[in-house]
């Protein structure tokens, strides 16, 4: 998987590249719009990540040019400009997704995977009825959950969270991602409702069992895995 990164701030770019490399993505870095355009025209990328405020040709212009030249790789706009107008303009000009700096890396990763999956038209994870993870069994149709053969009664949201976790094993999930998935919120209402839900789920799924699966990553969020 090749990703083109168009970002003039070297510090930000470097961190981004390192993080993406750790996740098995190859990266090419351009520091301005013209170079980005050139790279994109000459090579094939599965994804282009670009800032808007660039020296010379800005991000919007670059995206327009790419689309004019029939480059249809998905474009993720990563920018400090957070107004509604900027978002609308960015998406109208050919961008596929819009993330505001500063961003949570885990969210960026989730969006990157989403964009690539959509564009390569991979079918959604094959429809499974039962998921097995260690000693945990989940029936996605009946919503029955058992661990060590003991049935676990979960409330609606608790189940939704578990399903979200089980479909993202070993992938860190931020509170915002959970908030958006379970409650559909796209802004942070400054409450600790996610913490409360995770606490409840833990109480039912992890508490009286041998190994905890739900882990807190301070500063990042939560991750579901075997330690």
């Amino acid at each position: 998987m090749n990703i083109l990164i168009v970002e003039d701030d070297l510090g930000i770019a470097q961190e981004l590249i390192t993080g993406l490399n750790d996740n098995n993505f190859n990266c090419v870095h351009a520091t301005n719009g013209e170079a980005g355009l050139e790279f994109a025209l000459k090579n094939e990328f599965q994804l282009i990540i670009t800032d808007l405020m660039l020296p010379g040709m800005n991000g919007l212009e670059m995206i327009s040019e790419l689309r004019k030249n029939k480059v249809d790789a998905p474009v993720l706009i990563l920018t400090a400009k957070r107004s509604l107008d900027d978002r609308v303009t960015g998406l109208q000009n050919g961008g596929d997704d819009y993330l505001v700096k500063p961003y949570a890396f885990v969210e960026l990763l989730a969006r990157i995977k989403n964009l690539i999956r959509r564009s390569t038209k991979e079918p959604e994870a094959k429809f499974e009825t039962l998921i097995f993870f260690e000693d945990l069994t989940i029936n996605l149709i009946s919503r029955e959950v058992t661990r060590e053969q003991k049935k676990i009664e979960l409330q609606a949201k608790e189940y939704q969270l578990l399903e979200f976790f089980i479909k993202n094993i070993r992938i860190p999930l931020s509170k915002n991602q959970i908030l958006e998935k379970i409650w559909g919120y796209s802004f942070d209402p400054q409450t600790n409702v996610v913490d409360v839900l995770v606490y409840r789920l833990r109480g039912k799924v992890d508490k009286n069992f041998s190994k905890p699966y739900i882990h807190t990553l301070k500063g990042i969020g939560y991750v579901f895995k075997v330690e």
Binding site: K157, W183, N192, V193, V196
Partner: peptide, 13 residues
Amino acid sequence: LEIIDLYAMIAEE
């Protein structure tokens, strides 16, 4: 109802 849904759990606490 959406807002209540969000805060239900916290209120329950």
